[in-house]
Design a protein around this nucleic acid. Sequence first.
DNA 1: GCCAACGTTGGC
DNA 2: GCCAACGTTGGC
Length: 157
Amino acid sequence: MSYWLMKSEPDVFSIDDLAARPHQIEPWNGVRNYQVRNMFRDQMKQGDLALFYHSSCAEPGLYGLMKIITDAYPDPTQFDPDSEYYDAASRPEEPRWLLVEVQFVQKFAQPVLLSTLREHADELAGLRVLEKGTRLSVTPVTPAHWKTIGRLAGVAL
DNA sequence: GCCAACGTTGGC
DNA sequence: GCCAACGTTGGC
């Protein structure tokens, strides 16, 4: 099993939105980045766990935990002309973009803010989200970093 | 709203 | 295949 960090802008889709979904499940659609597409396809597997990161907001950071409940499959929004994620160049015979479905696990009682992560930069050295210029919306998390973040969140991960 | 950093596009 | 121009991300 692998660990991940997945970003979302809370104004668009927050961890509370995920918790409020039927069965607390959501297709993680709209990813239009090849590196992330390849991670979905080659590395992320059903049963993996992911931290839910709120970005582009007043207090960016980790707000909770979710589980990857499917392997990657084609993102239907790429074929929907009414979707903001529509990609006219992608053809159903050869889908360009993938998604995974995620399910809510828990919201942290206290979020682990980006500023807190930075305060623990020594322990978290190499965590992608702390590295300058990392804009990927999905990044891997090592088991050691995962454990540290669990401690900072006050939960056993 | 600024701006650094990065990804993508497209002309050549 | 190079690289300039442009668009996007995301913290501040």
